[in-house]
């Protein structure tokens, strides 16, 4: 109980600080527009009344936390989940392409790592391209991928999730290369004294040794996948998803909607990272890891 409190108190302190800073920022950023409105209406409100008004504009420059919270609550819990205004529905659309892309990306990353570790030629030829691939801005690639796939008749989930794959294979590939190369010389020597074949060394030593690296890199990859899925929805005219919601809200200056979509995205990201973390801990525990 006390330990739980010790963990929660610092987090809550930071959160409270952020909320206060957010309110201050909201007042400051919304003040010029509010002053403008008041001048045109010929009103001279008192300080407290003025501050209240800056925090309740319908399309504020910077929405106040309670406005976002209210919008988030309404769009998450008070709407039918099938409604295209529901955040649950939009989050699900994004989540499905995130998960598909993440699965592809993890598989691709592992495959590349296995190749790189076993074939010197691949190590030399592929690795620089893999690193270069991540320097290309995803926003530039995304529309091209979608357009090219649409031209050959593939639309919808697959091209979107490929953007996620593009972002998520990289951390997995790099992590797994490191993981598969992590066995100590002594363990490799030991296998050599048994005259073990390279497939035995791979399955009995390299793979189990790489598991902690795999989950650490999957945590990064799943968050990158979500970013990929959201970005993929922006230039494609997607009708649903967190990205689509962000884009349409920005067209109509519905800043509160934008912020609550952002909050939904962060919650999905936090959940995904947590789930991968828990899965990793369970697998490592079943492999005899010392409980932390």
């Amino acid at each position: 109980m006390n330990r739980a409190l010790e963990n929660v108190v610092p987090v809550l302190t930071i959160l409270a600080g952020l909320v206060v800073a957010w309110y201050v920022a909201a007042v400051l950023l919304n003040a010029p527009f509010q002053r403008d409105l008041d001048r045109r209406a010929g009103e001279t409100p008192g300080t407290m009344e003025f501050i209240g008004k800056t925090l309740s504009q319908p399309k504020p420059t910077m929405p106040a936390p309670h406005q976002v919270a209210q919008n988030f609550f309404e769009n998450t819990f008070l709407r039918k989940v099938t409604s295209n205004r529901s955040l649950v529905y939009n989050a699900w659309v994004t989540l499905s392409s995130t998960l598909l892309g993440f699965a592809f990306g993890t598989a691709l990353g592992i495959l590349i790592a296995v190749g790189v570790v076993h074939l010197t030629a691949l190590d030399r030829s592929l690795m620089p391209w893999i690193i270069a691939s991540q320097t290309i801005p995803i926003l530039a690639i995304a529309p091209m991928v979608i357009v090219v796939f649409a031209a050959i008749g593939i639309t919808g989930l697959i091209p979107k999730s490929l953007i996620s794959t593009y972002l998520s294979f990289f951390p997995v590939a790099v992590g797994m290369v490191k993981g598969l190369r992590s066995p100590e010389i002594m363990h490799l020597d030991l296998m050599h004294t048994y005259n073990a074949s390279s497939s035995q060394v791979f399955w009995k030593l390299r793979v189990p040794a790489s598991v902690p690296y795999l989950f650490a890199s999957m945590k990064v990859a799943v968050a990158a996948s979500l970013v990929g899925a959201i970005v993929a929805e922006l230039p494609t005219g997607a009708v649903a998803g967190i990205g689509a919601k962000l884009l349409s809200a920005s067209y109509y200056s519905q800043t509160i909607d934008m912020w609550s979509a952002l909050v939904a995205g962060s919650i999905v990201a936090a959940l995904l990272v947590t789930v991968v973390g828990i899965a990793g801990r369970m697998v490592e525990r079943s492999m005899g890891a010392r409980p932390a």
């Binding site: 002594m186 020597d189 030991l190 004294t193 030593l205 189990p208 492999m287 005899g288 890891a289």
Partner: peptide, 13 residues
């Protein structure tokens, strides 16, 4: 032959 190293070199998993 069986080889015993300086460290136990057991597989932790």
């Amino acid at each position: 032959y069986g080889y015993v190293f300086q460290a136990a070199a057991l597989f932790p998993w």
